[in-house]
Design a protein around this nucleic acid. Structure first.
Lengths: 211, 211
DNA sequence: AATTACATTGACCACAGTAGTCAATTTCAA
DNA sequence: TTGAAATTGACTACTGTGGTCAATGTAATT
């Protein structure tokens, strides 16, 4: 399926994927416009429908594609021998930003799919959601050594805190990253800064939470 | 301005405000539909335009209205004599959930205005943004006693962490709250749970961050 | 009862944008 | 040169848009 599309030259294929991801991450399914997608991807209307047949197929293709590359990246690149939860989080962050270098709107798109309510696609999203994504993300935290934490510490609250601090730093950079998606150099520099800042906060949390 | 609207019976006025806030919090300005607003508020198209004149006026009225009631609530209800940052956060949370009981989509709407890019309204939003809102929110943290924190603690990181944990708990309840906006009893119960859970996490953070 | 002034309705309008189609053209390997 | 596949973009039927306005309802005043 989608063979003609997959045989395309890589840069053209990515331009189409990125234009579509961006459109579906800004608008929900019903209001997203295939006209804007072809205009931003600089292709004709006809060829998009030649590749995907319908807006619905395009959307579901994107969902399949993004969940697959994300979960495969997690499976391939997470080092399950690493018992330190902070280092695990850094691995996950690294995987995410590397993917974002290629597909800027990838995680905005996935986030949007969680809130998608359009009856035309909702059911088929849930099918995937339940299986691939949760498993991959859960697996990314397998084998964490909780004995590294201070004694008598509420582990659940500690882990939630680490998660929320990670989210907070990401949010802090999101806006600036979005504003510079077209300047590769600046974009990469911001990503470096974000990773660096995360390290500092992790060090801070480590002194609080670890023995 | 908007006199006729403000003289309306309170329940009718609130129905219109809530329908509009919901529409503008789900869609951005350009794709939000006045047809859906009048349909959800159970009023005629004509009367909405009699009250507000245009979609743009309606939107800016809502922005003015919500920022005003929020900043006034902060000014009126925050106890600046309270030096404990956790208690201050709890005060802010209380103010927010009380407002949400009346206007469910209030903070979703305000959040959306930050990301609004439509040229038709962007300039006039920034005008407000710079002044009212930031000041009121900054004032809510005036007079915090940082000597309550452990010695040698990175205060900025500590405060960020508290903020992000607060955000995290809020997010955790957001979805469920949205799913039950029409069941007042359950809605209020969820709010109680959320405040209770925040207390627990604040206690957890206190043992880590305070002397 | 008649008058007046305002509140409210909803059918209606011109228009913009939609998903999808398809005859015509281009591309390119055989 | 041929033929098949890739690609174009004008086109269609249609849906939904912000906004209007003649008509009607409402209620207080004379």
């Amino acid at each position: 399926m989608y063979q003609a599309f997959m045989n395309l030259a890589e840069d053209k294929r990515q331009a189409i994927i990125n234009a579509a991801l961006k459109e579906f991450s800004i608008n929900h399914y019903a209001t997203a416009s295939t006209n804007r997608i072809v205009s931003n991807a600089r292709i004709s209307k006809g060829i998009l429908y030649h590749y995907f047949g319908s807006k619905k197929n395009l959307y579901l293709f994107l969902y399949d594609y993004t969940t697959t590359i994300f979960s495969e990246a997690l499976n391939r690149q997470i080092d399950l021998a690493e018992p330190d939860i902070f280092k695990r989080y850094q691995q996950i962050m690294k995987i995410k930003v590397d993917l974002m270098k290629q597909y800027h709107a990838l995680f905005d798109f996935l986030k949007k799919t969680f809130a998608e309510t359009s009856s035309e696609v909702r059911d088929e999203l849930n099918h995937y959601n339940a299986t691939i994504q949760k498993n991959a993300y859960a697996k990314a935290f397998e084998g964490i050594d909780i004995s590294l934490f201070r004694e008598n510490l509420d582990i659940k609250k500690a882990i939630d805190t680490i998660q929320w601090v990670t989210d907070g730093i990401s949010h802090r950079y999101e806006e600036r990253l979005k504003a510079h998606v077209d300047n590769q150099e600046l974009f990469n520099e911001l990503i470096e800064q974000c990773m660096e800042e995360a390290s500092e906060y992790f060090l801070f949390l480590k002194t609080l939470l670890y023995q």
